[in-house]
């Protein structure tokens, strides 16, 4: 136990260094092909092309990737702990479906033409909030939130929203259809500093807030009744953690589309590395998720440049393959 603090410190350092390395790597890589040296030079050369590529295109995109990746992984850890189910991810509860529905609806109504860039994230967030409220109300009876009910309601809401999205797609015009599909696949490229600041604050705020419940999550691993016996205010913790994970997820989806797998795979990997204790798991997953998403986005940017792939496609493929690899390796060990 004495060595644990040191081990936690080393893991945090490791993931932080990994994150910074990924950030720098991504900053120096792109279709115009600059290098780490040029990135450093561009800091001092204001007004140069390199400067504007780094500061107006790549840096906001990377920071948004950090925030979204970290936020999704954080939400994944929280929800997996809350449900005591390793297959739960931020999208299981229908939040992504709600956001996608909002965006599709916005597209159908032609809102981007009247409201501009903010229209789709706004509609996405409204859709997510609607689902959060709906799922919360439907699964809470007499002040008690039933976790299994929450899961089932969430999955059903997901199905309903995806059906509605298909309906919207069926009646959409061709160019709107294309935008909807691309939005659903997830994309980090369309952003500005305002969005980056909002997402950064949300993700970091969520991380800080989650630490007030790290011990509760540890106790909840034993089940609700056992956690109650340890003096945990189970109902309050469940509700706050659900809302925290949902709002973070909702904002992630609204700002970057549906980027799958990060919230499922990253917590698993990190758990294999650092263990079950949420006091290290929350921060490690956040850092690792942030790095993972930016790494995937970098691949999406450069692999068939100048064409960019949707980042959700890359996270799905990379995450899935890595996960199967880890699982079979683990089974071989047992």
């Amino acid at each position: 136990m004495e060595g644990r603090l040191l081990r936690w410190g080393l893991w945090t350092l490791f993931f932080t260094v990994f994150l910074l390395a990924v950030g720098l790597f991504s900053l120096s890589l792109g279709s115009t092909g600059s290098s780490v040296k040029e990135v450093f030079l561009s800091f001092s050369r204001k007004g140069s092309v390199a400067h504007s590529i780094v500061f107006q295109l790549r840096l906001p995109r990377i920071l948004l990737g950090f925030a979204v990746g970290g936020g999704l992984s954080l939400a994944g850890v929280i929800l997996q702990g809350l449900f005591r189910n390793p297959l739960v991810e931020p999208y299981t509860l229908g939040i992504s479906g709600g956001a996608a529905l909002g965006v599709s609806l916005g597209m159908l109504l032609g809102l981007p033409r009247t409201l501009g860039l903010v229209a789709l994230p706004l509609m996405g967030f409204l859709g997510a909030v609607l689902v959060i409220v709906l799922v919360y109300v439907l699964s809470t009876r007499k002040g008690v939130m039933r976790i299994q009910g929450l899961l089932l309601t969430g999955v059903m809401v997901s199905f309903i929203s995806s059906s509605l999205i298909m309906l919207i797609m069926a009646v959409s015009r061709l160019e709107d259809l294309h935008s909807i599909v691309f939005w659903i696949m997830g994309f980090l490229g369309e952003t500005d500093w305002w969005m980056v600041a909002l997402m950064g604050a949300t993700a970091l705020g969520g991380l800080v807030l989650s630490y007030f419940f790290a011990l509760d999550l540890n106790a909840l691993a034993l089940g609700e009744e056992e956690a109650r016996h340890l003096g945990v205010g189970v109902e309050r913790s469940k509700k706050i953690l659900f809302l925290l994970a949902s709002v973070v997820t909702g904002l992630c989806v609204a700002s970057a589309g549906i980027i799958g797998f990060v919230g499922l795979v990253v917590p698993h990997f990190v758990r294999m590395m650092v263990g079950q204790d949420h006091r290290i798991l929350l921060a490690s997953s956040f850092l690792c998720g942030a790095a993972f998403l930016v790494l995937c986005d970098t691949v999406a940017r450069v692999v068939v440049a100048p064409v960019e792939l949707p980042v959700g496609v890359i996270t799905g493929i990379v995450g899935g393959v890595l996960f199967i690899y880890a699982l079979t390796k683990r089974q071989a060990k047992v």
Binding site: A221, G223, H229, G275, Q276
Partner: peptide, 13 residues
């Protein structure tokens, strides 16, 4: 409790 679940962790934890 009777048949309480104990989760996947080490005894000391």
């Amino acid at each position: 409790s009777q048949d309480a679940q104990v989760g996947y962790m080490r005894v000391e934890e």
